[in-house]
Design a protein around this nucleic acid. Structure first.
Lengths: 203, 203
DNA sequence: TATTTTATACCGACTGGTTGGTATTGACAA
DNA sequence: TTGTCAATACCAACCAGTCGGTATAAAATA
């Protein structure tokens, strides 16, 4: 049986995620990470050729996980109703429920953490994030156009920004939740987004 | 008249703000700041006894400026209408106009930058920020209760989180605007917040 | 089956450079 | 000539990254 180095690699990424959300990328030293994991410098640079290399791996993992949430949410929601409006409302409800269960403020989102350290990263890393944000946009944009086949919105709205507003609500609410130390805030703000969609499209 | 060191002090704070929004607090070194301003270490530590001391001064200045926006917006808006609903909608419109003029993505908000470096700061700094967020909340909460004296919302809503949602929209939209490199995004998302208020309360 | 080889996974001392912060000195205005 | 303001030179701690070496186990060879 081979020694499984991927266990250590994952532990490094987990520790790095936690520390980066607390202190930011630039303030999280490799020494911090290895101390958290309980390994040495040698082990770290065996798995990642540089700190930036680790950042890329970390953001890839975070994006994959985020995308899994989108895909899971989609399939969860689309099996209960064929009405695109009900599907979209149910998707938001699903996220509300998940965030309503939290007892501590959500630790935060890597996209925001990296956004506010932008100058430390190159185009490649920014693109990985932007592409994932556009997957969310695309799913909701399509859903809204489906809705508009049978319903007329109460107001003329820009569909693309309406779709992006979900992510905006998440990102903004994470910051508010942490700053005001209110674990329930994210769910409450998602509820307003759901209300808005409902007011726009329901009869 | 003594030499006016406050000019240098302000230049330091301006440079620090710019750099911190680009790179984060932890990755912005004192050397970076003095290079940007064109002064030396001695000058920096004459004006601020530590880097943390500068951070406190910076966040105080940012909060004062933010509060000025709130106060200016209030008085601007309250002189054109006595209807609290029209006042609130006009306030959001005002911010929309300001952000619609931008040609580049808004550089970001210190509250978010500090939020994602939370572990580097103490309770004092977090409180300065939280108190300012609560001033925004209080103004809108009061306004919404005024509105509800004469109008019934289309849906039952949590007033406090409805008020906080303005800040959430700002914070989230700043991140989206920077990440997607879209200068007009903030104005568009504020528009949705205004739409939501309008749908909730108008006849 | 016993022995050698090879690849993986990890260690910890070390390097050149950067960090926040200090001590000392001097220039300039009142 | 005194207090304000800023420059130079410096320090100890910390930074990302390197390097020579080691332990282990699978694979190849005998």
């Amino acid at each position: 049986m081979p020694k499984d180095g991927s266990v250590t690699r994952d532990k490094i990424l987990d520790a790095a995620l936690k520390l980066i959300l607390q202190k930011g990328f630039g303030s999280t030293s490799v020494d911090n990470v290895i101390a958290e994991v309980g390994i040495t410098k040698g082990a770290f640079f065996y798995h990642f050729k540089s700190k930036r290399d680790m950042a890329v791996a970390l953001i890839r993992k975070f994006v994959d996980n985020d995308n899994a949430h989108l895909i899971d949410g989609k399939s969860e929601v689309e099996k209960y109703s064929h009405d695109p409006l009900q599907q979209l409302l149910a998707l938001i409800s699903l996220f509300e429920q998940q965030f309503a269960e939290l007892e501590d403020p959500y630790p935060g989102c890597l996209y925001a953490a990296f956004c506010y350290q932008g100058d430390m990263f190159d185009e490649e890393i920014r693109n990985i994030i932007a592409e994932q944000l556009q997957r969310w946009r695309q799913y909701i944009v399509d859903k809204v156009y489906e809705i508009m086949e049978t319903r007329t919105p109460k107001m003329a709205v820009d569909v693309e920004s309406l779709a992006d507003l979900l992510t905006t609500t998440f990102e903004g609410a994470f910051i508010m939740s942490k700053t005001l130390d209110d674990p329930k805030l994210v769910a409450k703000h998602l509820r307003h987004y759901r209300n808005y969609i409902e007011l726009l499209f329901s009869d």
